[in-house]
């Protein structure tokens, strides 16, 4: 028996929003520690890794490890039926071919359940090596979303260049070019608005705008985002989900032909 209950459905709704444009289907691997999801987009350019810890749920029970293969578009349709303040419970029997979502209104006067067919997904799993990154940049997630959106108007790629002075995002194309430079913040009133850079070595890498924009669908999950970069390895874009886990996106860089 698997059962996971969240007091607020909004976390799960936001998680789905953060992955459903990038992935069509994915396996939720559930065990004693919580729920893990790892999946590549169809083009195998990026990888999504989601962790929701058992202790972040209001109730969590997983008697036997279970993999729930879900169509994310169907799951998203079901989660849209939940009110933000509803409690959500995901349930599945051992060896089940369906998963059930139960939504309860705060006053318990409305209880809905939706059963969804599971899929047998035989997806490839990638081993992500422990990596010491040359640069990590922490900034407001809303600011990062805005930068990606603004620069997307100029070209298909964004160059991210990190030095100890700051981080610079650039794009160029038919209409011209754009550069946005962020300096490390000296002092701020709100911690989530700070720009914090840790740098061992300067790094400059080029990434596809389209994917960065997909990643920013996670903005509502966290006030801050962390970018980790080293030369010639995938960028990591991490959103920490308060009290329960994180979502990390890995994006392969573009390279000179």
């Amino acid at each position: 028996m698997f059962e996971a209950r969240l007091l607020r459905s909004s976390i799960l709704k936001k998680v789905l929003e953060a992955i459903k444009d990038l992935l069509t289907q994915a396996t939720f691997d559930c065990d004693d520690n919580g729920i893990q999801l790892q999946a590549m987009d169809n083009s195998h350019v990026s990888l999504v890794s989601l962790t929701l810890r058992a202790d972040g749920f209001d109730k969590y029970r997983c008697d036997r490890n279970i993999s729930l293969g879900m169509n994310l578009s169907s799951m998203s349709k079901i989660l849209k039926c939940a009110g933000d303040k509803d409690t959500v419970t995901m349930k599945a029997q051992d060896n089940a071919d369906t998963v059930t979502f139960v939504f309860e209104s705060p006053n318990q006067e409305k209880v809905s359940d939706y059963e969804m067919k599971l899929m047998n997904l035989d997806l490839e799993h990638l081993g992500i090596p422990e990596t010491e990154y040359s640069c990590t940049i922490r900034l407001s997630s809303a600011e990062f979303a805005r930068i990606c959106r603004d620069l997307s108007q100029f070209g298909e790629s964004i160059v991210i260049s990190c030095t100890k002075e700051g981080v610079r995002f650039s794009a160029s194309g038919d209409i011209g070019s754009a550069n946005i430079a962020l300096a490390q913040t000296a002092s701020v009133d709100k911690e989530e608005e700070a720009v914090v850079i840790e740098m061992e070595e300067p790094v400059t890498l080029t990434f596809a705008c389209q994917y960065l924009n997909y990643f920013t669908k996670a903005t509502s999950l966290s006030p801050q985002v962390q970018l980790s970069m080293s030369a010639d390895v995938p960028l990591v874009v991490e959103y920490r989900i308060p009290d329960i886990g994180h979502i990390r996106y890995y994006l392969a860089p573009k390279i000179d032909d």
Binding site: M40, S43, H44, V45, S46, L47, E124, H125, L126, G127, I128, P129, S157, T206, A208, V233, P234, Y250, L251, A252, P253, K254, I255, D256, D257
Partner: peptide, 13 residues
């Protein structure tokens, strides 16, 4: 520039 695949960095397990 050409887009690398994520599988060229992370091995399939």
């Amino acid at each position: 520039m050409s887009q690398k695949s994520i599988t060229s960095f992370f091995k399939i397990t």
